[in-house]
Each structure stands twice: as C-alpha cells, then as structure tokens.
C-alpha cells in the first residue's frame, strides 16, 4: 500500500499530470555528486592542475625511462671516461657546467662520466616506486586501524591509540640506519636492489601509519555521531555495513588528501636515507645517492643541481596538488 503505484500523490506532483512525460525530451535529472563538484573546483585551481600535470609527466617518465634513455641517452651505469679530464676529474665539455651538451643533456658525473640525464630519469623510478608503495602501505594500515579505533571505541581504541603513540615516537631514522647495517644481501628470498627497495617500502610505510590512523580516527569519531549512522543502525545495519557503506565513503576525501601530502614526505625520506648511504646502494641511480656522491665535488655544485631540482619539482608538484585537492574536497577549510 505504501509503495504501490497508486500511492497518494502529493501537491507537488498533481494527479493526471505526470511531470516526467510533460517535460518531454528534456534530459533526466542527474544529481551532481560531491566528487563531481570537487573535480570542478579542482579544475579551476591552476596551481593544483599544474602540480597534477607534472605528477602525471613524472609517472610517465618513470614508467618509460628505459625507452627514453634508449632513444636519447646512455645507459645510466655505463662509464664515459673519455668525457672526463683525468688530471682534474672535471668534465672536458665546453658547455656551461658541462651541461646542455647535445650528447649528455645534463652533463656527466665525476669521476666516471656517467650520464646525469639517464641517472635522473632512472632515479625517478626508484623514488616514485618507493614513495607510492610506502604511502599505500601507510594508508592501508592507518585507515583500517583508524576507522576501527574510531568506530568501536573502548579498549580497542585505547590499544590502537597507544600503538599509534608508540609508532609516532619511534626513532625511525635511527632504526633505518641500524637495520640497513644488519640486513644481509640476501634475505626473504630477495637480493640486491629488490631486497633494499622492499625493505625501504616496509620501513617508511610501516612506521608512518600513525599519522594516517590519527586523522582517520578523528574523522570517524565525528562521523560516528552523525545521525545517518543512527539511521542505518535503526534499520538494523550491522557494523560491517556501517563501516563500509556509511563511513568509508565519507573518509575517502581525508585519506586521499593526506596520502597526496604523505607522498612528497616519503620521497624526501627515501632521498635522505639514500643520501646517508642506508637506502638503495650504488651504483643503482637514486636522487639521494646522486646528491650524496656530488657532495664530494662541492667545488662543482652543478652535479648536485639536477638531482636536487628533480626532488624539488617532484615534492612541490605533489604538495601543490595535495593542497588543491584539500581545498576542492573540503572547501570549509579554505
């Protein structure tokens, strides 16, 4: 009777005058979701869009680095001793800073004359891979534990919150340096760079989930008190349904925002570890490792310039995009 086709029709929809047909060929009413509105806002934000484009370019560069290097440059680890002056260990190129040479776009590295251009491209692969996967790990652990702590409360919340405190207080840098010394070249069926990359992803991701969990927990605490959660409960919904269908869609925005702001932090952290020599080991090209090697040639600071610029642009792009995303998804904070 309630939902029958003859259910009483209100004043807004007078009987005998079906509104849908009357409007004829007009297109059906489509609601704009909050996501679509956010996308419109984001498109208007020039800085964020620039950041987004740079990020996409960086990802493409990282993916297609071998192709680009094949077509344009040299293998990142091959030596070009002929370009170096054996006496001074400086590039013999006459181009300013040894760069902008049509043969070696960003010049060559002392003392072996490795091509900086291809090393920067290959460094992007390591940096982005580690930063993305470590962030993903933090997001998965942090969001899951955060939403559980916030929703269930009580002793579960207490245990998870104390674990968060523990991880936030953890001297992660000291731990990373110590771990790098202990880990052998072969472990867990992995070896060499693969092992190091997995290890870095684990260290950075596993020790960073605390921030994510805190943000998600806080959001969940406030969402839990909203009446739509009570409405779902009064319909007989189970906790799993409320978490997945009611709470999670509202948490996507803060998770996404924090993830895009966590990525540049992780890039910097990976570069820092590689700089300290506890990240990826040479000769594999990483931005941090290149900086570290360039330090020895401080009289020729242009060797530091290119990897430094790469880190700077990447971090800036992610931060601009993340800020724009936050403004677009959460206009109240503007």
């Amino acid at each position: 009777m309630v939902v029958g086709p003859d259910a009483s029709i209100s004043d807004q929809v007078p009987v005998g005058q079906p509104p849908a047909e009357a409007e004829g060929p007009q297109k059906a009413i489509e609601g704009r979701s909050l996501g679509q509105i956010a996308w419109r806002r984001l498109k208007r934000d020039k800085a964020a869009m620039a950041g987004g484009i740079v990020i996409i370019l960086l990802i493409l560069i990282a993916i297609f680095a071998p192709l680009i290097v094949n077509a344009w440059g040299y293998d990142p680890n091959s030596f070009h001793q002929e370009t170096m002056d054996p006496a001074t260990q400086a590039p013999t190129s006459t181009f300013p800073f040894g760069s902008f040479d049509p043969k070696h776009l960003m010049g060559v590295e002392p003392p072996f004359g490795r091509d900086i251009f291809s090393r920067v491209l290959y460094g992007a692969r390591i940096s982005l891979l580690i930063a993305f996967l470590a962030t993903l790990l933090s997001v998965i652990i942090g969001a899951t534990l955060g939403v559980i702590a916030g929703y269930l409360g009580g002793w579960v919340d207490w245990v998870i919150s104390r674990a968060m405190d523990l991880f936030l207080a953890f001297p992660i840098l000291v731990f990373a340096i110590a771990l790098a010394g202990v880990i052998p070249d072969k472990a867990f069926g992995l070896s060499g760079d693969t092992l190091r990359i997995v290890l870095l992803i684990f260290i950075i991701g596993f020790f960073n989930w605390g921030y994510m969990a805190r943000i998600v927990r806080g959001q969940t605490l406030s969402l839990r008190e909203r009446e739509f959660v009570d409405a779902a409960r009064s319909l007989g919904a189970r906790s799993g349904y409320i978490l997945r269908k009611e709470l999670l869609p509202n948490l996507v925005a803060p998770i996404l925002i924090y993830a895009t702001l966590l990525i540049p932090t992780n890039i910097l952290f990976e570069a820092g570890l590689s700089f300290l020599g506890v990240g990826i080991r040479p000769p594999t090209a990483t931005w941090g490792g290149m900086l570290s090697e360039a330090v020895r040639y401080y009289t020729m600071p242009h060797f530091m310039f290119w990897p430094g610029l790469a880190i700077f642009i990447t971090v800036l792009a992610f931060n601009l995009f993340g800020d724009g995303l936050r403004d677009a998804l959460d206009p109240k904070t503007r």
Binding site: V2, V3, G4, P5, A7, S8, I9, S10, D11, Q12, V13, P19, A20, A28, I29, E30, G31, R32, S33, L34
Partner: peptide
C-alpha cells in the same frame, strides 16, 4: 513511489542530499 508519497519529485532519484 515513496518519494511521491512524501511529496517529492521522483525524478530526483539520482540527486544528492546537498541539493
């Protein structure tokens, strides 16, 4: 049918609450 019953346009099925 429920939307009709409470006096709303059933065409608004795909809209979001903020509208």
């Amino acid at each position: 049918d429920l939307l009709k019953l409470v006096g709303l346009n059933p065409e608004h099925y795909n809209r979001y609450p903020h509208e």
